[in-house]
């Protein structure tokens, strides 16, 4: 019974969202606001029971691990964002958070920059590596604005534009596929789960 109600509700909300394709209307607005509210409403108690209780309340108040008072107090600092006089206290948890971000910098540099550069420096033994080499160099030079894009240099940098256009085309093609997939997913739900037209 509950499953049937859920399916009908989901179908109603899906159609409400689709109604925007005709024009803006109260059904769309209702579904949009409900989605945002439900997402937040779902996240807050879920986080409370799965994060606050097991990682803060239980160890501190049931197991008496008093060392946790320190991170607990640092975390509470965030709440002072709402006070005009004491908002400076919120900088401490932010600073602590940034410190953790800093921990990831060396690994990010390795994974996102050094390994990528290493691939660029391989011997040009196949067509893929040659294309990657030409594409990377021509795009880097295209964004080098201290020299006028004229003559042979200008022609070479214009190759960079072609590489970028192909890249944008690939991204856009994938984006079209993604958006259509969302439509297909919803229509599959309506046709199978709701209307039972697909087995």
């Amino acid at each position: 019974m509950m499953e049937t109600i859920g399916i009908w509700l989901a179908a109603f909300l899906t159609l409400s969202m689709f109604s925007f394709l005709y024009k803006d209307n109260p059904f769309y607005k209702f579904a949009e606001h409900l989605f945002i509210g439900a997402s937040l409403g779902y996240g807050i108690p879920y986080t409370f029971f799965n994060v606050f209780i097991p990682y803060a309340y239980n160890p501190l108040f049931l197991k008496h691990e008093y060392i946790l008072i320190i991170p607990f107090l640092i975390g509470i600092g965030y709440w002072f964002r709402f006070s005009n006089n004491l908002s400076w206290l919120s900088r401490y948890p932010i600073a602590f958070g940034l410190g953790i971000v800093g921990m990831g910098v060396p690994m990010s540099i390795h994974a996102q920059i050094l390994v990528q550069m290493r691939t660029m420096m391989l011997p040009l033994t196949n067509i893929n590596l040659i294309l990657i080499f030409i594409g990377t160099v021509s795009i880097l030079l295209y964004f080098f604005f201290s020299k006028a894009h004229k003559g042979v240099y200008g022609k070479f940098t214009s190759i960079g534009i072609w590489f970028m256009m192909i890249g944008f085309g690939a991204s856009f093609g994938y984006t079209v596929m993604a958006r259509l997939s969302l439509l297909i997913g919803r229509l599959q739900f309506l046709l199978s789960d709701w209307l039972g037209l697909i087995n």
């Binding site: 390994v115 990528q116 290493r118 691939t119 893929n128 990657i132 890249g167 690939a170 991204s171 994938y174 984006t175 596929m177 993604a178 997939s181």
Partner: peptide, 13 residues
């Protein structure tokens, strides 16, 4: 699919 094209460099490496 939106993110797919951005991740091909990691396949290459």
């Amino acid at each position: 699919a939106v993110s797919a094209a951005d991740n091909y460099p990691y396949l290459q490496t």
